[in-house]
């Protein structure tokens, strides 16, 4: 007979084993590759990474994308979630439609936007037929940096805003209606209600959404590669490049560790800044 105290641990065991085998061990292996060479400890791989001419661009590009994409997605999702929450009918339908892009892989999303934006794409045909442009223009030139960034931002926002939306819609549904009504009675305009009541009470969901979305945004890869090839290097594409093109798993591992460190740092910041203190819990 299994004792009652042991049961929860027993039930957790399969998941724990799974995580150890498929997450902790590979992680340790990656960490090991990053700091060793022929069995000895070294920081040489980090040095190689740092001195690679594409490291700084990859780092800046990745941060720039995150800093642009995440706020846009949060703002859009807050607006959309507010709209959906207020809807009386058709709410499910609208949510399903808005979440369709979630079902598409990031590579496919990148290709969809490539087919819209490139020289022979939809956008050019429409503009050409409308007479706005005399001849199709290539919007994704390797040296047009703002355009490359804008294209990736556009595709990423289109592709992955819905995940934030879903989290926030669920979160808003959890806020008792009476708080909003009380704010309304006590003189708060819709905007003030949103700022003074909805946002503070939404902190737990915002936290979840931000952590999820920021980590995934740092891992931007397929969309960037599909739209810009190697013209807009990001941390993930450099990891891939070192691992498979240059066949150097040590430097690739160093890149991976940088990504991990950045993700952990941001998660800690979110946990701290958006925490709901014990006494504030209803």
């Amino acid at each position: 007979m299994i004792s009652k105290r042991a049961l929860p641990y027993l039930l957790l065991l399969p998941a724990t084993v799974f995580l150890i085998v498929f997450f902790v061990l590979p992680f340790l292996q990656v960490a090991w590759y990053a700091v060793t060479d022929d069995g000895g400890f070294t920081l040489q791989h980090f040095e190689t990474m740092r001195q690679d001419w594409k490291f700084m661009p990859a780092l800046t590009n990745t941060f720039l994308l995150v800093i642009i994409i995440v706020p846009i997605q949060i703002a859009l999702s807050l607006g959309m979630a507010s709209l959906v929450t207020k809807m009386k009918t058709g709410r499910e339908l609208v949510l399903y439609i808005w979440t369709i892009p979630l079902g598409i892989s990031d590579l496919a999303a990148g290709l969809i936007w490539l087919s819209i934006l490139d020289q022979t794409g939809f956008m050019n045909s429409v503009l050409f037929h409308l007479g706005v442009v005399d001849q199709p223009v290539n919007h994704l030139l390797y040296n047009d940096y703002p355009a490359l960034i804008a294209a990736v931002v556009l595709a990423e926002v289109w592709r992955s805003t819905a995940i934030v939306l879903v989290v926030l819609v669920a979160g808003m549904g959890l806020i008792p209606k009476e708080y909003g009504e009380a704010a309304e009675v006590f003189g708060a305009s819709p905007w003030k209600r949103f700022i003074k009541v909805t946002l503070p009470l939404l902190r737990p969901s915002l936290q979840t959404a931000l952590i999820l979305r920021t980590i995934l945004a740092f891992e931007v890869f397929a969309v960037a590669v599909a739209l810009t090839g190697t013209n807009l290097p990001v941390l993930m594409s450099e990891t891939f490049h070192w691992q498979f093109d240059l066949q150097d798993r040590h430097v690739a591992s160093a890149y991976a560790l940088v990504l991990l460190a950045v993700s952990i740092a941001f998660t800690l910041v979110y946990l701290r800044v958006l925490r709901v203190r014990e006494e504030e819990r209803a």
Binding site: P176, E178, A183, V185, G187, L201
Partner: peptide, 20 residues
């Protein structure tokens, strides 16, 4: 008119005291 323009105030059944 919206509630805020009516010169009223209200006590709710579940108090609706803001937790934050």
């Amino acid at each position: 008119l919206p509630p805020r323009s009516r010169g009223i105030s209200m006590v709710f059944q579940n108090y609706a005291v803001f937790p934050h």
